[in-house]
């Protein structure tokens, strides 16, 4: 028993749940906002990504972003957000174009083409980091796991004179809002081309245009989330809220709403879990969403058994 007690850190309700919302509210609020916005944007867009069976394209983009960032740094000689963002976005779009190109111009299937492209680009990025390592101030841990807490070290900037917030939180907020507005405005063409590309084409909606627009949007979201949650855990944010919500409902609009609820809940619980265990925030959020996925799965199994039990 003693051994197990050593493994689990002591839990102090006051310290884990109360103090962040009282004494450290200024900084904690922004970490929470960032966690929610990243999970919400990924979850919302992820719903379409998952149902179009492109879940791993997000994985590919998040890895191939590395050379984009390094090259942007070498060219601009700065760590400003804009060149970093453009470099990463360019790499993300290049990834989807290359996957498509290899798939169309050879007999290689999409999954293998995906594996070729993102590992190559990631390796290219690693080589660049090794070559110009002393010039590039890149932390490998940060690339892989992200640093959500970094938002508190930023100097807050004013937003429309209403309030002050860290720059990256404002940027992520804009991205999240853009994703939701675009999905709402183009909901029907998106739904149609995801469910039945043939009918969409016959109605003059080009599934290829929708596909590439979605890929570009995915690149924007992944690149924005990259700094906060890293290359690996962004996949959890893309896939888990969407799959969890899909287990709970059979209607797409409800599923989209549920991903936002899941984002809110997992950001809240994940942050407090990270405080308690003194662990990575992004990883803690992912663990919480995984827990929700298991709960949703179990509840679906239980309701099915109950329903079929009644029928007999």
């Amino acid at each position: 028993m003693e051994f197990w007690k050593q493994l689990i850190p002591p839990f102090d309700f006051q310290q884990v749940f109360v103090e962040p919302w009282t004494e450290y509210l200024d900084s904690f609020l922004w970490i929470f906002a960032m966690g929610f916005l990243v999970t919400a944007a990924c979850g919302f867009l992820g719903t379409f990504i998952v149902w179009r069976r492109m879940a791993l394209v997000g994985d590919a983009i998040s890895h191939s972003v590395l050379p984009g960032i390094v090259i942007a740094f070498l060219v601009s000689q700065s760590r400003d957000t804009l060149p970093m963002f453009l470099g990463a976005l360019g790499a993300g779009v290049l990834t989807t174009v290359l996957i498509e190109l290899i798939h169309q111009k050879s007999r290689i299937k999409t999954d293998a083409a995906l594996g070729i492209v993102f590992t190559t680009l990631f390796a290219f990025g690693v080589v660049l980091v090794s070559l110009y390592g002393e010039n590039v101030d890149l932390d490998v841990d940060c690339v892989l796991y992200g640093e959500l807490e970094h938002v508190i070290f930023e100097t807050p900037v004013a937003f429309l004179g209403l309030f002050e917030a860290p720059n990256s939180v404002l940027r992520m907020g804009a991205v999240t809002l853009a994703v939701m507005v675009l999905v709402a405005v183009f909901y029907r063409p998106l739904l149609l081309s995801s469910f039945d590309p043939g009918l969409a084409r016959s109605m003059g909606v080009s599934p290829a245009v929708i596909h590439h627009a979605l890929m570009a949007l995915l690149a924007v979201v992944v690149v924005s989330a990259f700094e906060a949650v890293g290359a690996v855990l962004v996949i959890a944010m893309l896939i888990f809220p969407a799959t969890t919500a899909s287990l709970l409902s059979d209607r797409l609009p409800v599923i989209l709403g549920l991903t936002l609820l899941i984002a809110l809940l997992s950001a809240f619980l994940g942050l407090h879990l990270a405080l308690w265990l003194d662990a990575s925030t992004a990883a803690s959020i992912s663990v919480v969403i995984f827990g929700m996925f298991l709960a949703a799965w179990a509840s679906r199994c239980v309701t099915r058994v109950a329903r079929e039990g009644f029928r007999r």
């Binding site: 149902w51 405005v185 183009f186 029907r188 063409p189 739904l191 149609l192 995801s194 469910f195 039945d196 043939g198 009918l199 016959s202 109605m203 003059g204 909606v205 899909s246 409902s249 059979d250 209607r251 797409l252 599923i255």
Partner: peptide
């Protein structure tokens, strides 16, 4: 067989897709 019948839409949603062509993009 050309579509995924697990897709989260109901019967009405699918039939309404028949009206999309007359509606324009948005």
């Amino acid at each position: 067989e050309s579509v995924d019948w697990d897709f989260p839409v109901n019967v009405m949603d699918v039939v309404l897709m028949g009206r999309y062509g007359k509606l324009g993009l948005t």
